[in-house]
Simulated assay, not measured.
Amino acid sequence: MHEVGMMQNVLATAVERAKHEGASHIRLLQMRVGEASGVVPESLQLAFDVVKKETIAEDARFQVESVPVVCYCPNCTTEFHPTDLLYECPECHQPYCEVRQGKEFELAFLEVS
């Protein structure tokens, strides 16, 4: 489960930022995770529960904002939400389109005290 390693890095960044701001506790850690990021939000929750122990985030809540996939077809300039994993343009049926949104994996919000 690669999510544990990823959460270790995210939590380290969050703790560093919270301490830099003079906080002694993280109350909420919120992330934005794209549907095409390859990360399973439920696994992130489990990983967070493991890595937060004995840190200033030990009592923190964890939330994930899911970011939908948005593609762009340069052939016909259509922006669309794909309905399957092929990301084929629904207008001109070009098989490859640019993914403009949905690969995010970022720390979005911290609530500290």
Rank of each mutant, 00 (worst) to 15 (best):
H2D: 00
H2M: 04
E3S: 00
E3D: 03
E3Q: 00
E3M: 02
E3Y: 04
V4N: 06
G5C: 12
Q8G: 11
N9L: 15
N9C: 13
N9S: 14
V10K: 03
A12G: 08
A12L: 13
T13R: 11
V15L: 02
E16V: 03
R17A: 10
R17I: 10
R17F: 07
A18H: 15
A18R: 11
K19H: 14
K19Y: 08
K19G: 09
A23D: 11
A23Y: 13
A23F: 12
H25L: 15
H25R: 13
I26K: 05
I26G: 04
I26T: 06
R27F: 06
R27I: 15
L28E: 15
L28N: 11
Q30H: 08
Q30F: 04
R32G: 11
R32C: 15
E35H: 09
A36P: 06
A36R: 07
S37A: 09
G38V: 14
G38S: 07
P41D: 10
E42W: 02
E42Y: 08
S43Y: 11
S43A: 13
L44Q: 01
Q45I: 00
A47D: 06
A47I: 05
D49W: 02
V51I: 07
V51E: 05
K52Y: 01
K52C: 09
K53R: 12
E54W: 06
E54C: 05
I56P: 01
I56W: 04
D59Q: 05
D59G: 00
A60W: 07
A60R: 14
R61V: 15
R61H: 12
V64K: 10
V64L: 10
S66H: 06
P68Y: 11
P68S: 13
V70H: 03
V70S: 06
Y72N: 06
Y72G: 06
Y72R: 11
C73V: 03
P74W: 08
N75W: 00
T77C: 09
E79Q: 01
F80T: 06
F80S: 05
F80I: 07
F80K: 06
H81A: 02
H81R: 10
P82W: 10
T83H: 09
D84E: 14
D84K: 12
D84C: 12
L85M: 05
L86E: 14
Y87K: 08
E88M: 14
E88Q: 15
C89T: 06
C89K: 05
P90G: 07
E91C: 00
C92N: 02
H93K: 15
H93I: 05
Q94G: 10
Q94A: 11
Y96C: 04
Y96S: 06
C97I: 10
V99I: 12
G102K: 15
G102W: 08
K103F: 04
K103V: 08
K103P: 04
K103N: 08
F105A: 01
F105R: 03
E106I: 07
A108H: 11
F109C: 04
E111G: 06
E111L: 09
V112Y: 07
S113A: 12
S113I: 07
S113V: 08
